[in-house]
């Protein structure tokens, strides 16, 4: 036995769009994969997301955005994390995100972006593979 770690993931919806089906599908899929999912609901500011992520000490943050504001919202979350000295939380995103934007998001610290049609198992495997490397 000894230490028993559980992976904790915050699933958040930054911005103003009210389409939370994707976020809920992801939350459910992560739960079924044995993760603890903190779901904070709609219309979160990047500040609220970062504050919740720190209090909940999550391993990863999944951001869902369908409003088109991802180029502002996603990098802003990463920026705020860095400002608070957090560099060991994995940030990934999903939603209706044009292919052209993906390299820019990655450059801004979003480790991966999943577009519509991606099987949930791909996102789950991604998080599993990446949080294992997280230092404690």
């Amino acid at each position: 036995m000894g230490e028993e770690r559980k992976t904790r993931v915050l699933v958040a919806k930054p911005g103003l769009d009210g389409h939370d089906r994707g976020a809920k599908v992801i939350a459910r899929a992560f739960r079924d994969a044995g993760f603890e999912v903190i779901y904070t609901g709609l219309r979160q500011t990047p500040e609220m997301i970062v504050s919740a992520a720190i209090q909940e000490d999550v391993d990863a943050i999944g951001l869902s955005c369908l409003s088109g504001a991802h180029m502002y919202l996603f990098p802003h979350v990463v920026k705020l994390l860095r400002e608070r000295g957090v560099d060991d939380v994995l940030v990934f995103g999903g939603g209706t995100i044009p292919d052209d934007d993906i390299p820019k998001l990655k450059e801004a610290g979003i480790t991966e972006v999943f577009t519509p049609g991606t099987p949930t198992s791909v996102a789950i495997d991604f998080v599993r593979n990446h949080v294992g490397r997280r230092k404690r």
């Binding site: 559980k6 939350a27 459910r28 992560f30 739960r31 079924d32 994969a33 044995g34 993760f35 603890e36 999912v37 903190i38 779901y39 904070t40 609901g41 979160q44 500040e47 609220m48 504050s51 919740a52 209090q55 909940e56």
Partner: peptide, 30 residues
């Protein structure tokens, strides 16, 4: 969930107004 060991912790949804208040600390537990 007793079947998968996973959990959805969603109590924060109702407590969003406090997320930026330094005088409040919220922790979800499974």
């Amino acid at each position: 969930s007793p079947f998968t060991g996973g959990a959805i912790l969603a109590d924060r949804i109702r407590m969003q107004q406090h997320s930026l208040d330094a005088g409040v600390f919220i922790r979800s537990m499974a």
